[in-house]
């Protein structure tokens, strides 16, 4: 079985080339990358840790779609690239710093909590709290690509996780933090939902944040431009 891998090194000219490797196949993509590194090419650089889909360090793109290397089973001819948009450090290793920095801006943390919640309440945030910060959603996001100030999918889903948390008393603080470069800038294309390895639905969470924002009297500024269809009566 052969894999084509996009290599990148900032000091080389050209910095980016595609290379093909023969692998024995049968295992996961991470096992294949490991085999290449140990047996064929020590310079191949990638990131990994848990091998079981929970640490969020090994996401790459396979034939253009984000996958965790440790849970994806490669097929002959697959094309492996680093995550898009987030910046590449070397080969398949992305720079997560700017994506992670959105969490604080989006207030994706508890603001004012009390203890205790019901079984039903917990179910409301179960899926969102499965997030592993693998950055696949940022890689797939067309808004983040054109506007690096956009808060982005996992920050908004994780902000929603606190809005939807029955223990959170200050929901308004969360909503206020996601209005600028946040919930109204999302085009609801659903790429993030399609690529999330944990089955989280950031698109839906963003829609839910929008309706929370409406409860606090915030209107979609993009719709505002169409007020009265721009017509004077």
């Amino acid at each position: 079985m052969r894999l084509r891998i996009r290599r990148y090194h900032p000091h080389f000219e050209p910095p980016s080339i595609d290379m093909e490797y023969e692998i024995s196949g049968g295992g996961t993509l991470l096992e294949a990358l490991e085999e290449i590194k140990q047996k064929r090419d020590r310079t191949l650089s990638f990131s990994s840790m848990c091998r079981s889909g929970v640490c969020g360090s090994c996401a790459v793109r396979v034939n253009g779609k984000e996958e965790l290397a440790c849970t994806y089973k490669p097929k002959d001819g697959d094309y492996i690239e680093p995550l898009s948009v987030v910046g590449v450090l070397r080969d398949l290793i992305g720079d997560f710093n700017s994506s992670l920095a959105t969490l604080k801006k989006a207030h994706a943390y508890p603001v004012q909590m009390h203890s205790g919640m019901s079984e039903e309440d917990e179910r409301q945030i179960e899926r969102q709290s499965d997030c592993i910060l693998c950055v696949s959603c940022y890689s797939s996001c067309p808004v983040y690509e054109t506007n690096p100030s956009f808060l982005g999918p996992f920050a908004l889903s994780r902000a929603y996780r606190y809005v939807a948390d029955s223990r959170e008393e200050n929901k308004k603080a969360h909503i206020d933090a996601v209005l600028q470069n946040g919930i109204w800038d999302c085009t609801l294309c659903g790429n993030c939902t399609a690529v999330c390895p944990q089955g989280i639905d950031p698109k839906n969470d963003i829609v839910l944040l929008q309706s929370w924002a409406a409860k606090f009297g915030h209107l979609n500024p993009n719709l505002g431009n169409f007020g009265s269809f721009g017509l004077e009566f």
């Binding site: 508890p110 909590m113 009390h114 203890s115 919640m117 019901s118 917990e122 945030i125």
Partner: peptide, 11 residues
């Protein structure tokens, strides 16, 4: 209190 979403049984 910090927000950990522990599984629940009833309350």
């Amino acid at each position: 209190y910090l927000g950990t979403p522990f599984s629940r049984k009833g309350a």
